[in-house]
């Protein structure tokens, strides 16, 4: 089996320099829309193209609530006055108070990942975290199969009716202190599934969220940023946010 060892060494270091330095490779993020100055008519046209109600008009400026963006790119590709697009990936927000993990947990946390009805892409991006490109072990993050060892509950998916009990069981089985990191637009607000009677409107309907990572799906770097925000090692971004309507109330 020695050829595997040599092969592994020969591959060299692929790991991203983030968070020490920004990642500059192409294709690591789908980007997010940004607000811009538009007059009322143009703004309405832009808002009409968006199926996810990301944009709202405030003081002659179109503001983008990126937590709702589902990456359909219609605002950029078919709107007459397209939205600006930002190829960033530091997206994580903290909706409430400081999470305040005690310092013992800053450098090494175990993450329990729960798929609460995810379409597969968020989960695939979470799986990429263990990929040599991202390798979250170097940051002290470990994915654990059991909630008993977990400090962070990472939820993807809109929380389907069938999964909500399991999600609560996982949360209850975790020791304190514990944080909930909601990853992806579905976990934040239900995304395209919010209106379904078989889904809750995101994790908020079931559990308190500590860190929100928008994106559909958020790229691995955005998830890493979310975890760094959860442990207090990076600052959250400040975004204009509007409260969600509670979903899951039926069509």
């Amino acid at each position: 089996m020695s050829h595997w060892v040599f092969n592994g060494i020969r591959t060299g270091i692929k790991t991203s320099a983030y968070p020490r330095r920004p990642e500059t490779a192409a294709g690591v993020t789908p980007g997010l829309p940004r607000g811009r100055k538009l007059d009322a008519g143009e703004a309405k046209a832009l808002m009409d193209t968006c199926p996810a109600e990301v944009f709202r008009l405030e003081d002659g400026r179109v503001l983008a609530d990126v937590r709702r963006c589902i990456h359909c790119y219609r605002c950029m590709r078919i709107a007459p006055h397209p939205a600006l697009w930002e190829q960033s990936y530091e997206w994580a927000l903290q909706p409430g108070r400081e999470t305040g993990f005690v310092s013992a947990f800053k450098k090494s946390i175990n993450i329990c990942v729960v798929d609460a009805g995810d379409c597969g892409s968020c989960l695939n991006e979470v799986r990429q975290l263990n990929n040599p490109y991202y390798n979250i072990h170097r940051l002290g993050f470990f994915i654990t199969p059991t909630p008993r060892h977990a400090d962070v509950l990472l939820v993807v998916g809109p929380v389907t009716d069938h999964m909500s009990l399991a999600l609560q069981k996982v949360y209850n089985a975790m020791p304190t202190p514990k944080l909930v990191v909601a990853v992806g637009v579905c976990a934040l607000s239900g995304g395209v599934f919010a209106e379904s009677f078989a889904c809750a409107g995101g994790v908020t309907d079931v559990l308190p969220i500590d860190v929100e990572v928008p994106g559909n799906p958020p790229p691995p770097l955005a998830i890493i940023h979310g975890l760094l925000v959860a442990t207090g090692r990076k600052a959250p971004v400040d975004m204009p946010a509007t409260p969600y309507q509670s979903g899951g109330s039926g069509p």
């Binding site: 909630p147 008993r148 999964m163 009990l165 069981k169 089985a173 304190t176």
Partner: peptide
């Protein structure tokens, strides 16, 4: 001290 039921994989 918190006592929790055994972890059952989330089964109903």
């Amino acid at each position: 001290l918190a006592r929790r039921k055994r972890w059952d994989g989330g089964v109903r």
